[in-house]
Simulated assay, not measured.
Amino acid sequence: MAYQAFDVTVSNHIAHLQLKRPEQFNSMIPAFWSEILTIFDALAADPAVRVAVLSSTGKHFTAGMDLAVFANLAPAVEEEGRKREELRRKILNLQECFSIIERMRFPVLAAIQGGCIGGGVDLVSACDMRFATRDAFFHIAEINIGMTADVGTLQRLPKIVPEGVVREMAFTGRRLGAERAHQVGLVNQLFDSHEAMLDGVMAIAAEIAGHSPLAIAGTKEMLNYSRDHSVADGLNYIATWNSAMLLTVDLPEAIAARSQKRQPAFDNLSPPAAKLI
């Protein structure tokens, strides 16, 4: 399927989503928001996908939300209460475009070059890992246009980096450079070039894809759950989870492969259950 904002390929259990509007600095046009939901819905339904890489083209990863999206947020009704309710639903719909990334059964890795601005920070904050070129920078730009960021940055970023760093970025509108982003843990690894970054991230994606997809899905589920719950809640959840998931053929296969010095062979997960309505 052809998309306006993305190129999408799937190979060797790795889905690669690439923003493809470099001349416009990959700004998040209206099509971006509908397409990202469609793409991740399709990837979720594809049992062969075990990891996804999100990258971009050109000088900047993304310039953030396109002005046309702001225009589309204008409510169609006049009555004040209904106008506000409609606007709230539109904001929630935008949030869903990134929340869907967290709900994927597989990890999503972001490869970032140049500017990651505004909505770009919301996007990569929802990913499992972030990698960047040395010229990259992160910019919570909303404060500079008189608004509060509302699509996930202020909710997710404090769970990734020290809260003081987020507050400095959000209150001042200053850029966070790649070196500092690496120091505070926003970025896993820095690369000298875009090409080297893509090679490195694809190698990590391949390593993830070689593990049991059932164990990877469980690991992501536990990490996300533990981020938002107490240690006791997390321990209770993993005990329940593994009481159901531990008796799998993947465990003896992984052990046998290690002893035989070969690559393990794991079955794909089943497709998600069909929607009843």
Rank of each mutant, 00 (worst) to 15 (best):
L154P: 01
G146M: 00
N242A: 12
G152H: 01
A141T: 12
A203S: 13
A239C: 10
A205G: 02
A217V: 01
V184R: 05
V201I: 05
N144F: 00
F191N: 02
I143Q: 09
G218K: 05
G200V: 06
D135G: 12
S230V: 05
H139P: 02
H211V: 00
R227D: 14
I204F: 12
S243D: 15
R167W: 00
K220I: 02
A205R: 06
L190R: 05
G146W: 02
H182S: 09
A205P: 00
G185M: 12
N242M: 15
Q183K: 11
D192R: 13
I143D: 06
S226T: 14
I238D: 06
M202Q: 07
A203Q: 14
A206C: 03
A196G: 00
V184Y: 02
V151L: 14
V161Q: 01
T148H: 13
H229K: 06
P162S: 08
A239L: 08
A178R: 00
V151A: 11
K159T: 03
G234S: 13
A196Q: 15
V187G: 01
G185V: 04
L246Q: 12
E142D: 14
Q189N: 04
R175M: 13
D228R: 08
G210K: 04
A239P: 03
E195D: 13
T148Y: 09
S226M: 14
H139M: 09
Q183D: 13
S212D: 08
D135S: 09
I216H: 01
I208A: 08
A206T: 05
V201C: 07
A149N: 09
N144K: 15
